[in-house]
Structure formats: C-alpha cells, structure tokens
Design a protein around this nucleic acid. Structure first.
Lengths: 237, 237
DNA sequence: GAGTGGTCTAGACCACTCA
DNA sequence: GAGTGGTCTAGACCACTCA
C-alpha cells in the first residue's frame, strides 16, 4: 500500500491530464480536498507540493492552486529520463543495436568518472539508436560490477533501467547531468550517420543509488539536429 | 523575518559548504537537530527536504542523512540561473553589449511564444556577451509591456533580473526551458565571433510569475564550444 | 470578514538499520 | 531493542485576497 499523499498526487495528475481539472482553473481548496479525501490538510499539502514541483499547478497565496497550461508533448515532466521513456514520448520507435556488452578493465577516463581506486573491471555497453534507418544516438554506458554483477546483450537491447530497477532491485535515486557540444570522434563517425554534421551533443550522466553511491557513468552522444532537452524549473527565493 | 525552516536550511548549506558537515558523513539526526534548533521535527524535515532536493544531502532510511560529495564548480545548484549568476560561477567577467532595447510590435513568432492575442508591443532586448574579446553569447529577450512598463539600456547592461525582482518587485516563479542546436542565422553571424563553428546552441526560456502568467521569452544563443549545462535531478519513483 | 494558502507544533505509529 | 527517517494527524496562528 502506497502512501496516501502519493496516491492523492497520482489521482490529481490523472484528473489534470484528463482535464477534469482544466488549465487556468482553480483546484478545490486544501480544506475541501482534505474533506474529500478524508485526510488532514498537511497530507493534502504534500500532494499539492508534488504537483507544484512537477509543473502541474501553481499555488497562489490567498487565492488557491491553478492548473498550469502544459503541452504534454513539448514539456514532459523533467528529471531523469531513460532513453526508452524518451522515445515513447517522441512517438517513433527507435531501433537499438548493441555493439559492445562486456566486462572490461576501466581506463583512466572511466576510473576518474566513476571515482574508482584502481583499474577495476566495469561493464562497458555501447549502443546505437536508429530512427528511420538513421543512426542518431550513440550511448556508452559504464556500470560498476560490484553493484551490477551481470548484464547481457539482450538486456542492453531492451532497457537497462528496467533490468536494474525491477530485476536487480536497485533504487536509483539521483543523477548529475552535464550537456556539452564536442567534435565527433572517430567512433562517432564510424557508428553514427553524421550526414555532414560537425558537432555532437554529449549528455554525461552520473547516476547514484539511494545510498548515495555512484554506480553508473553514461555518455549519450546525439546528432545535433535530433537533440532536444526540455526542463521545468522552479526558481528558489 | 524569514521562515524557520528556510533559516535552518540556509545555515546548514553554509555548514556543508564550509565543511563543518563533511562529504560522506552523517548529519545529526532529525531529533537531535530539532533539539538543537528548538523546533519540531517536521520543521527540521522541511529544511532537510530542501537540502535533498538541491543535491546537498541524501536521506537514508534507518540510518540518517549523508552529505553528498559535490564539486561546487562543476555542479552548481541547478534550476533557473540568470546569465550574471552563471558568469559569477565561471570566474571570468563577461562584457555585455546592448544592441537593441526598444518597444516593438511583436511579430508572429514572438506572439506565439508569449501567447499574445494580437500584435501588442513588447520590449525587445538584444545583447551580446563577450569573454576575452570574443563575442560568445547572443541573448534575445522579449518582455510583456503590461508587466514591465519600462526598461532602459542601462538596466539591460547590468542585470534585467535584478531590476525585475528588486526594482519592480516581480516574483519570478518558474520557467520552461528548451535546449536545441540550430544553424547560425545571419544575425548570429553578424553579432557573434563564430570562428568557423557551424552550429549554435539555443536555450529557449519561457518565464512565469508567481500568478502563473507568462511574461518573458528569452533565447540565449551560445557558441557551441563555450556552452555547458549542468543539472541535478532526483528520480521520481 | 470569510476564505485561501504558508508555517509550525507535539505527538503518534510505522519500516528500516545495526549491534 | 534503541535509533533512524517516513507518514499522518488535528489544531493553531499567520499573511494574503477579495467582495
């Protein structure tokens, strides 16, 4: 049984997406919601805070909470998004080709990224993603073998995240992301259909578990014309 | 007088940055903190949740809250960051040149971005940012005149955000951001030192006030070699 | 002045960790 | 079994909005 405030949050997300609660209209007041859900106001407020954080509503003091107009296609909830989730939203089904899926000794660069003490073994997974017969994205994943003792080409072909979370029971907690633009490497030129593009957008991702241990480093290398990153951010005051 | 939980949050941020609380060590427990700050546990928890959200700590059930190792230079707190804040963190002082600062009639594109009904007037501000004598960034800002009745070249040269928040008293609440890569326009070629680069990284920003009204659309156009975006994101479960 | 959201409290019960 | 964080409650007081 999930938490009450998460259930209320999810139910309200549904209602916003189905437009039971419409954009620019006000939600019922916190007191009314507390009454409806037979719970305390603080619990309602936890649900509403989740909605606000994720860009569904804007709370206005003295007035109420209004539903933020959102183009679901343009602005998915931001945060950590795996490639598969992203592709679902893009509509078109990508084809994944696995070029490498093996335990290798970490080179200096990977050692540094994953803060390894010595040249431990890591899983190296190299994949390309194709849309309409064009190889657009090169994904390079490095996973610590202590946390992920085994992984197969089959898994790499579907979803690594699904395997990590549902099969291994790992709880992914947060990630640090960096986006930069680089010159294509020889590997990029070989594995991607660059079509004359002179740059590659590189998304570096450092992924952490719920005990704050770093266990994965990922580089997602995109052809620039197909790259798009969207984000919803609240300003701190 | 600010809120108790914000004060506690700020004090703890200080302690983490000054390494009174060191990376990978545990904070005092919530009960201890409640005792120390003479407050209730729920108030302490609000402060700790802010710390967790902003990537300072990781809470581990049954054990406590550990300080996340963070390279402050590499990973500033993510979210909405104005150019001036960003430049402060980069160390080098940029030079801003204002090319345009005028009320103009909104063209079709701007009307669409700002969801205007007709061709209202908007403030158009076009600026370049130089580092080491190189014009690296082209900023194009469009502000709704109803919200921002007046703005000057002087303001555009320093910080628009400072003016909006401290002079006009506007409360900026959230923004939707989109990052894509484009071919340089004629304007990019004219106003930036492209040095042969074939692409421009474009950050589109839709900025909203605390009453959920959209009042500003910004395009920040970066030379790709100097572009860098970092983010801290928690995964939703 | 009635209604709204924002903060804070003191206490309860729970699941989890670790010796 | 002692200590940890996670959730939930019922109530208080406050600042703000709006008629």
């Amino acid at each position: 049984m999930r938490n009450k405030y998460v259930l209320i949050y999810q139910e309200m997300v549904q209602k916003i997406e189905k437009e039971t609660f419409k954009a620019n209209e006000f939600l019922p007041s916190e007191n009314e919601l507390a009454e409806q859900y037979q719970t305390s106001r603080e619990t309602i407020r936890k649900a509403l805070n989740l909605l606000a954080q994720n860009g569904y509503i804007q709370k206005i003091r003295g007035k109420g909470s209004t539903v933020i107009e959102r183009n679901k296609f343009d602005f998915p909830v931001s945060g950590l998004v795996s490639f598969k989730e992203l592709a679902d939203k893009m509509g078109e089904k990508p084809i994944t080709a696995v070029h490498q899926c093996a335990k290798v000794s970490a080179n200096d660069f990977i050692q540094k990224q994953l803060k390894l003490k010595d040249n431990q073994e890591v899983w190296e997974i190299i994949r390309t993603r194709s849309f309409s017969e064009q190889r657009i994205i090169l994904d390079k994943d490095y996973l610590i073998t202590k946390t992920v003792p085994y992984i197969s080409k089959d898994i790499a072909e579907t979803s690594i995240y699904n395997y990590l979370e549902n099969e291994l029971g790992l709880i992914i907690s947060f990630a640090k992301k960096e986006i930069i633009v680089e010159e294509p490497t020889a590997e990029d030129r070989e594995l991607l259909d660059l079509e004359g593009f002179h740059n590659i957008v590189v998304i570096k991702n450092y992924v952490y578990l719920d005990d704050a241990t770093l266990f994965q480093y990922t580089e997602s290398r995109h052809r620039p014309d197909k790259f798009r990153f969207v984000d919803f951010a609240r300003r701190e005051h």
